[in-house]
Amino acid sequence: MTDPPSGEAAFLVPGTVEAAVEALGAAGAVAVAGGTSIGLLVGQGLLAPSVLVWLGRIPELSVLEEGDGQMSIGATTTLATLAAHPRVRTAVPALADAAASVGNTRVRAVATIGGALGHADPRQDLPPALLALDARVEVAGGRGRRHLAIDELIDGFMSTDLGPDEVITAVRVPLVDGRRSCYLRFTPGSADDYPTVAVAATAEVADGVPTAVRLAIGGAGPAAYLVPEAEQVEGAPEGRWAAEVAEVAEAAARRADPVDDRLGSAAYKRRMVAVWARRALERCLGADGVQP
């Protein structure tokens, strides 16, 4: 007689990051934060961990504070907390809007920023927003702490640069005076669905002239990606950047590497990247009359 595959697992509740890292050194150990992704994988029989390391009782990971020109968001900060945070909403609305868009009320109530990034699903809302905002991720592991850009952390389809004994500890988002940001997701079927494509844009606009323009795209490749051509818009005089925006939007579409799935064909998603990239830039730059 043998035991069924989904047998007993140890459940550990470390109180510090160091203890969590040590616990994750065991074979078959998996970090759990909000538990929505892990709960889904375990429930569907796709994951049979031998050790669950719950990060929900580590004080360091739940910090959400401003300092040194940045917002430090502890890894176990929930998406609901992020979406409702007054400073996040005013300073980095793209992040608040992305957090408010994930899943449903129940998911947002428990899912965490660290867990979302660790899951690395290309249809997720947070990666494009954080990429556009030039956020950096702090990771702790057996080799100490290191810092990664979003597109260094998420290095492919459902894949991260994290070692087996590493955990995300915090996400740091620069706070820049006068920076605008917006996040738009295209859900033409059900609003609760994953986006067909998602676009985040940030820019600083002084006297109508944009600088520091960043554009990131989600849902249209194995991972969210930046569109470096966005800098073409920089310096264009007020209201005179329509041609540049159109070019950047086409560049964003050229960089897309989407797949055919139920959310749309690759060809359609590519076209939608161009439309929504343009809309996000316009929104961010104020072209549609809406001040972000």
């Binding site: 759990v32 538990g35 429930g43 109530a109």
Partner: peptide
């Protein structure tokens, strides 16, 4: 907090 108990690990 409202949660989906189908996904919520008992340990948590």
């Amino acid at each position: 907090r409202p949660v989906s108990s189908c996904l919520y690990l008992a340990g948590c």
